[in-house]
């Protein structure tokens, strides 16, 4: 009976350990989980002819990390996402599989808005365009980045032209033309974000687009109210409060990032959150 008793004790010991162990693993800080990604050279070597899978795994890893972080963000934000290592991971992924659209799409979704690394984003998109020659999305992203963030309209026009040629869609051809800087920035952003939100397969990413879209819709509402005020009163409103008192804004605009809208001295609509959770949460009273 001795071996039996021994086995039984071992099983009990296992049960005793497995619960705290699993608990710890569940609550283990996410930052730790993002972990270290070996250099692309090493990854290339060890993944031999499974580079595609390794790339997909890296992308999934950063998406899951992002997903895990975005959800708790709705309330408070304890950890700012480690965008730098997310970018590093995605950059490694496209070294392994330069065709992987997920990587470009995902990098685009946070690099420009949250990290303001527009140049890095466009460099990555340029790299992708060398491979995904058929894909209109990459020049479209690059075009948007150039126009909206860099305000480099001639470069943007080139990108949009390419996107137009590849997709054959009128919209991009128009964008490439004069329309580009006639249409307001906010309008552009909304058009772009709507498209991105529709295309997002991953729930966390889609939600982040939806929030941003919501913010821009609020901005548009504010801008429209501001323009109506100017048309009626013949001068620009001094502050947001004045606009609200004037009665052009119901309901009162709310920044989904938790920030507060205000009017810049030149009449531009801005928010204290700068459209990021980190700042929005920090400024929260």
């Amino acid at each position: 009976m001795k071996p039996f008793a021994f086995t039984l004790i071992l099983i009990l010991a296992y049960l005793a350990v497995i619960i705290p162990f699993a608990d710890y693993q569940r609550t283990r800080p996410v930052v730790e989980k993002m972990g270290y990604v070996p250099t692309p050279q090493v990854l290339k070597f060890v993944s031999a002819d499974h580079k595609g899978v390794t790339a997909a795994a890296l992308i999934l890893k950063s998406m899951m990390y992002f997903g895990a972080i975005v959800e708790p963000q709705f309330n408070t934000l304890k950890v700012p996402p480690d965008y730098q290592s997310m970018y590093g991971t995605l950059a490694a992924a496209v070294k392994l599989d330069p065709y992987n659209m997920d990587a470009y799409y995902f990098a685009q979704s946070f690099l420009v808005w949250d990290v303001h690394e527009v140049k890095a984003a466009n460099a990555m998109l340029e790299y992708g365009m060398k491979y995904r020659k058929w894909d209109f999305m990459l020049p479209l992203f690059a075009g948007f980045n150039s126009a909206y963030f860099l305000k480099d309209y001639s470069k943007a026009a080139q990108y949009y032209k390419r996107a137009g040629e590849l997709s054959g869609a009128e919209l991009f051809v128009n964008l490439a033309g004069r329309y580009l800087w006639q249409s307001g920035r906010t309008e552009q952003a909304i058009a772009y974000l709507t498209m991105m939100e529709k295309g997002a397969g991953n729930e966390a990413v889609r939600r982040s687009f939806r929030i941003r879209l919501q913010a821009f819709r609020e901005v548009r509402r504010l801008e429209e109210a501001r323009d109506r005020f100017r048309a009626a009163e013949g001068r620009a409103p001094k502050s947001l409060e004045e606009l609200i008192r004037w009665g052009a804004l119901t309901p009162i605009p709310r920044d989904p990032y938790g920030g507060r809208f205000y009017l810049e001295p030149d009449g531009q609509v801005a928010t204290t959150s700068k459209f990021t959770h980190a700042l929005g949460a920090a400024r929260k009273p």
């Binding site: 595609g52 997909a56 992308i59 998406m63 992987n100 659209m101 997920d102 295309g199 397969g201």
Partner: peptide
């Protein structure tokens, strides 16, 4: 289906 934009592509890769 975890992929955002290339479900079939990822399935073929796998």
């Amino acid at each position: 289906s975890l992929s955002m934009r290339q479900v079939t592509e990822l399935s073929i890769t796998l």
